[in-house]
Amino acid sequence: MDFTWQDLVDYLLALSGAIPEEGSGIYFLYEEDNCLIEKLWSGTEILEQVFIAEDVRTNTPALYLLDGDTRLVFYVDTQNVLRRSRYDTDEEEWQVEGEEEGDIIIPQKSKLSGCFTPEGQIVFFQNQSGLLQGIEFRDSKCELLNPAPAEPLEGTRHLVLRSTDENLYLFYIGQDRYIHYLIKGPETGEKWQENILKSPIIEQNVTNFMVIPDEDMKSFETHLVTADRLMGIDKQGEFIDFGKVVEGKFTPNSGKECVIETILLVKKGVKAIAGKALKTKKK
Rank of each mutant, 00 (worst) to 15 (best):
F3H: 10
F3P: 08
T4K: 04
W5S: 04
L13S: 12
G23E: 09
G25L: 14
Y30N: 07
Y30V: 14
E32N: 10
E38M: 08
K39C: 12
K39W: 07
L40Q: 05
W41K: 08
S42G: 11
S42W: 11
E45V: 15
I46D: 11
V50H: 09
I52D: 03
A53S: 08
A53D: 03
D55N: 09
V56L: 01
T58I: 14
A62F: 04
L63G: 03
D67S: 08
G68V: 15
G68E: 04
D69I: 10
V73M: 02
Q79A: 12
Q79P: 07
L82H: 06
R83H: 13
R84V: 15
S85H: 06
D88T: 15
T89Y: 08
D90K: 12
D90N: 08
E91R: 14
Q95Y: 10
G98K: 02
G102H: 12
D103M: 13
I105F: 15
I105N: 03
K109P: 00
L112Q: 12
L112G: 08
S113T: 15
T117A: 08
G120Y: 05
F125G: 01
Q128T: 13
Q133P: 11
E136G: 14
S140T: 09
S140V: 11
K141V: 15
L144T: 08
L145V: 10
N146V: 09
E151G: 10
E151V: 10
P152Q: 04
G155W: 14
R157L: 07
L159N: 00
V160C: 06
E166G: 13
I173L: 07
I173Y: 04
Y178E: 02
H180L: 02
L182H: 04
K184F: 08
G189T: 07
G189K: 10
L197Q: 04
E203K: 06
V206G: 02
I212E: 00
I212F: 00
D216N: 05
M217K: 00
E221C: 01
V225P: 00
A227K: 09
D234V: 00
K235A: 00
Q236S: 05
Q236T: 11
Q236G: 03
G237W: 02
E238M: 09
I240F: 05
G243R: 13
G243Q: 07
K244M: 09
E247Q: 11
K249L: 13
T251F: 14
P252R: 14
K256H: 12
C258E: 14
C258F: 07
I263Y: 04
I273K: 03
K276H: 13
A277Y: 04
